[in-house]
Computed example of a mutant assay.
Amino acid sequence: MTPTYYAPHGGHPGQDQLLTDRAIFTESYAVIPKGTMRDIVTSFLPFWDGTRLWVLSRPLSGFAETFSQYIMEVQPGGGSDRPETDAQAEAVLFVVEGSASLTVGGKTHELTPGGYAYLPPACGWTLRNTGDQTLRFHWIRKAYEPVEGLDTPDVLILNEQDITPTPMPGTDGKWATTRFVDPADLRHDMHVTIVTFEPGGVIPFLETHVMEHGLYVLEGKAVYRLNNDWVEVEAGDYMWLRAFCPQACYAGGPGKFRYLLYKDVNRHMPLRPPAGR
């Protein structure tokens, strides 16, 4: 079965609607439900034309400090010839609607839904929507942490639909991860994967670990345990977790529960504050 990918379309609720929603921000996690992604909360970026975006997360001192995540919305003909203004920033792009014409290293690639691109720092990429439909994609940014003796990672252009998910041991395939990067490749300091649960699948313990997370629900619904709370989430919702926030989940069905997951990996813990702080 071909995967589905939820994407926001903006707009505003009518004046007759209740204010009640599921948005919450705590000291250890945030839930940004799909109903909050309206026209009034969009942003714009320098050197991007025909484009707006929803900022889902950004580095915050004392919370999640390693990454930012956007949902980009690019109209036909729009895009950027100077998309990234930070030479130290690496990126992952993941397309959920429409198609993107991505040029990097002198080669142009067409990314369709499920399309993934890893872009190392200072690789000089550009992106345009050359199609006739609105393009929507996730853009995850992180300041790359170089390590002496390790090369910078290569550009990767892939599609989820060409990758076989890796089942978690002992789960009979009810919990699986689609990996775009070899976990043994220590050049990478972040992983962006897709996690899939079959109906009734669970994370059967409270994961508590150093990695920060961004989790965007692509499909389905579940009950997610975040710190002390059970929170209902569905396609289009975003969960933002600081390091060591306990987490677990139960996929309620009737279909698959799938999310796009960010985490920081493969580096020593910094023992001193950054210079200038």
Rank of each mutant, 00 (worst) to 15 (best):
T166G: 02
T152H: 02
N129M: 10
T126N: 05
G131M: 03
I157F: 03
T178M: 01
D151A: 12
T164I: 13
L186T: 12
D185E: 13
A184T: 14
P167R: 01
L156F: 03
E160L: 11
D185V: 05
R141S: 13
F137H: 05
A143H: 15
A143I: 08
Q133A: 15
N159L: 04
N159H: 07
D154L: 07
R128D: 06
A143R: 15
T126W: 05
W139Y: 12
G170K: 00
T177Y: 02
T171V: 10
N129P: 02
A184L: 10
T134A: 11
D151G: 06
P183T: 07
D182I: 08
I157G: 00
Q161M: 12
P169E: 08
L186K: 15
P146V: 09
L156K: 13
T177L: 06
V181A: 12
G149C: 08
I157W: 07
P146I: 13
L150I: 00
T178R: 08
L150S: 00
D172C: 00
I163Y: 05
D182E: 11
A184M: 12
I140C: 13
V155Y: 06
F137R: 00
D154A: 09
A184Q: 10
Q161R: 10
E148V: 14
T166M: 04
N129L: 10
W139R: 14
K174Y: 09
A184D: 13
E145D: 10
M168R: 12
F180I: 05
T152P: 03
R179V: 01
P183Y: 05
P183H: 04
P165K: 01
D132H: 06
L186V: 14
P165G: 04
N129Y: 08
D132L: 07
T177K: 09
D162A: 15
A143F: 08
I163F: 03
W175K: 09
M168P: 01
L135Y: 11
G170P: 04
G170M: 10
T177W: 02
T177F: 03
R136M: 06
L156S: 04
R141Q: 14
T152N: 01
W175T: 02
D185W: 05
N159G: 00
K174W: 07
P183F: 07
R136G: 03
T152L: 06
K174N: 11
G131I: 01
N129D: 13
K142Q: 15
P146E: 11
T177D: 07
R128Q: 13
